[in-house]
C-alpha cells in the first residue's frame, strides 16, 4: 500500500536516549526469557526506525548488537553488573532484530529474533596463540570432561546428588591439553554418597541449580578442578492453565520450568 500521510517511518539516531531506552527494554526481555546460556548486554545499536501505528502508538524497529557476559541465565546478577566475556575467552556476539510498541509512554516488546555467533578462531589466535577456543558442546571430549567434572563434584558433595542440566560452553586449551567446561547442574532427591543408579534420581520440585566451571586435563589420572556457584532455590510457580485442563505436574519428575517462562507471556513493561 502506498505510504499515506503519517504512515511512514522515521530514521532515529541510534544514540538517542529514547532509542537506548527501547533497546534496554528489549535486552531486559531477552535476558529474562533465555532458555539457557548466558546473559547478554548491549554493545551497539545498528539500526533504529520509528513507525507510526494505527489507531495509536509507535513501533520501534531496532537492530541490536549484543555481547555475551559471564553470568548464566539462571544467575540473578543484574546484566549491567555482569562482566562481558573477554575476547581472550573467545567472545560471543548476538545480533537481534526487535520490534517494540510504545503506547502511553510505555514500551512493550512485540517480537525478538536473535542469532548468536562466536568470534572467529583466527581473531582469537591473533590475539593470543594459546588461548582456549570454543568447541561444540556435544563433542566427545566435552561430554567426557563434563562427566568427569560432575563425578568429581558429586564425590565431594555431602548432600544431594547433582544431575546435569545443561552444558553451557566448552573450550579446548592447547597447553597443557585441557577442556574447560561451564555447565549447570540441579539437585536431586538422591543423596550423593548413597547413589547406586543415578537414572532413578529425580530433580527436586523446588529447583536448586548450580553453575559450575571445570578444568579437565586430557592427561589420564590428572586432577580435575571444579567450582560451582549455587543459586537460590526456585519456588514452584503454578502455571496458568486454560480452562478444562488439569493442574501442572510439580512432582520430582516434572519437567523443569524456568521462572523466566512465566514472565514471557505478559511481556515487560517499562
Amino acid at each position: 500500500a502506498p505510504h499515506g500521510p503519517g504512515l511512514g517511518y522515521t530514521q532515529l539516531n541510534c544514540d538517542d536516549p529514547e532509542t537506548e531506552q527501547a533497546a534496554q527494554v528489549a535486552l531486559d526481555y531477552i535476558n529474562t526469557n533465555l532458555a539457557g546460556g548466558f546473559k547478554h548486554v548491549l554493545n551497539q545499536i545498528d539500526k533504529a526506525e520509528l513507525w507510526s501505528r494505527r489507531p495509536a502508538g509507535e513501533i520501534y524497529v531496532l537492530e541490536l548488537d549484543t555481547l555475551e557476559t559471564t553470568c548464566h541465565a539462571l544467575d540473578h546478577t543484574p546484566p549491567e553488573k555482569c562482566p562481558v566475556r573477554e575476547r581472550m575467552e573467545h567472545a560471543v556476539e548476538g545480533d537481534c532484530d526487535v520490534q517494540l510498541l510504545k503506547m502511553d509512554g510505555q514500551f512493550r516488546v512485540l517480537s525478538v529474533k536473535c542469532h548468536s555467533s562466536p568470534d572467529s578462531a583466527e581473531d582469537v589466535i591473533k590475539l593470543c596463540p594459546d588461548c582456549p577456543l570454543l568447541v561444540p558442546r556435544n563433542s566427545t571430549k566435552v561430554v567426557h570432561a563434563v562427566e568427569a567434572a560432575l563425578a568429581a563434584f558429586n564425590a565431594h558433595s555431602n548432600g544431594s546428588y547433582f544431575q546435569l542440566v545443561e552444558v553451557s560452553r566448552a573450550q579446548l586449551a592447547p597447553l597443557p591439553p585441557s577442556v574447560y567446561v561451564e555447565f549447570v547442574v540441579a539437585a536431586t532427591d538422591c543423596v550423593a554418597k548413597e547413589v547406586t543408579d543415578p537414572t532413578k534420581c529425580n530433580l527436586l520440585a523446588e529447583k536448586q541449580y548450580a553453575f559450575c566451571k571445570a578444568a579437565v586435563p586430557e592427561k589420564v589420572d590428572a586432577e580435575v578442578s571444579v567450582t560451582c556457584k549455587m543459586f537460590q532455590t526456585q519456588p514452584v510457580v503454578p502455571q496458568p492453565q486454560p480452562e478444562g485442563t488439569s493442574a501442572p505436574e510439580v512432582g520430582p519428575g516434572a519437567p523443569m520450568t524456568h521462572q523466566a517462562d512465566v514472565t514471557a507471556a505478559a511481556g515487560p513493561v517499562l
Partner: peptide
C-alpha cells in the same frame, strides 16, 4: 559544491545517526 540557501548544512549532512557507539568491543 553548491549549497542551496535553507538546505541542510554540511555539518548536518556529516552526522551519521546509525550505527551507534560501541560500548565494549567489536567482533
Amino acid at each position: 559544491v553548491v549549497v542551496k540557501p535553507g538546505g541542510p548544512s554540511l555539518a548536518a549532512a556529516a552526522v551519521r545517526p546509525c550505527p551507534g557507539r560501541i560500548r565494549h568491543f567489536k567482533i
